[in-house]
Design a protein around this nucleic acid. Structure first.
Length: 277
DNA sequence: ATTATACCCTGAGTGC
DNA sequence: TGCACTCAGGGTATAA
């Protein structure tokens, strides 16, 4: 699924198509995704001006001028497709929602596994409802996040570093790819317990995580299965992955150990047994 | 309280 | 070619 860099890429692509426009039509091709789609989505949103498209963690947020925010999560396999004007793409069985904008563009939400969802919230109360009321610091560009606060947040718990990075209450936006990448880059074991981390190690991890995320955003995220830029381009960061999907490849740090893959809390984890301690 | 596990769902890939 | 099986970028309700 889209993690932070992929959702950010989608967010940036949606901005020019949506901000200052409105939805003329919202076509629901099924009543539910992970949860029921609000039945009154179209009547509440159509012809209302869109102020802002933004991202929080892995959520896309579309703010309307009448204090409504469309919360849009893409689950594991969700894709957003912005059609060129006048062009009509071949429909897919999994095109669940089709938005038509006042700019006469069609925006298609395609999600084979349907782990994604759409919800509505009052804009000014968004941070008081789940999951936004418990989300951790934004992994990038959060003024309250630094090595010190990250260290405090980690040492308060006793879970593996990999689980901590995936826990959206600890830090928001990180998923399985970038958790493995950041731990590899920081030379920290995914099995290391959070309460054993020194301040210097927490700083190193945060720096590595932010570096990986920024580099991924710069090239449009990672295209492994489903993620494609809404205009049809693919992301390129999969070519720069040093750990994720790299089992049996030589570790780029030590050049002498093959990376291994293990299941950790039900998710694949990739790491170097020698470099990551 | 925190921390693990099962599960939602389809499609792609593998091995027989 | 077909079938059975595993795994996949996430989050949540449960159980321990």
């Amino acid at each position: 699924m889209p993690e932070l860099p992929e959702v950010e890429t989608i967010c940036q692509a949606l901005k020019p198509a949506l901000e200052g426009h409105s939805f003329q039509k919202i076509q629901l091709n099924r009543p539910d995704l992970r949860y029921p789609i609000p039945y009154d989505l179209e009547s509440k949103l159509a012809h209302q001006s869109i102020n802002l498209v933004r991202r929080r963690a892995k959520y896309l947020l579309v703010d309307f001028s009448h204090d409504l925010t469309l919360i849009w999560h893409l689950g594991m396999s969700g894709r957003v497709i912005i059609e060129d004007k006048g062009l009509s793409l071949k429909p897919s069985l999994h095109d669940h929602v089709v938005f038509t904008t006042s700019g006469n563009q069609r925006i298609i939400y395609r999600d084979p596994r349907r782990f994604g969802f759409l919800r509505l919230s009052s804009t000014h109360q968004l941070n008081e409802i789940a999951p936004f009321n418990t989300l951790g610091a934004e992994a990038l560009d959060d003024p309250h996040l630094n090595g010190c606060t990250f260290h405090q947040c980690l040492t308060r718990r006793k879970i593996s570093l990999k689980s901590a990075l995936l826990d959206q209450k600890v830090i928001a936006g990180v998923g399985n790819i970038y958790a493995s990448e950041a731990l590899w880059q920081a030379k920290l074991s995914p099995f290391r317990l959070t309460n054993t981390l020194t301040l210097a190690e927490a700083e190193r991890l945060l720096k590595a995580l932010q570096d990986v995320l920024r580099r991924a955003i710069a090239v449009g995220g990672s295209t492994l299965r489903d993620h494609i830029h809404p205009n049809g381009d693919i992301g390129y960061f999969q070519h720069e992955l040093k750990a994720y999907n790299c089992e049996h490849k030589l570790c780029a740090h030590c050049q002498s150990t093959y990376l291994c893959k293990t299941m950790q809390n039900g998710r694949a984890t990739y790491y170097c047994k020698i470099c990551q301690q």
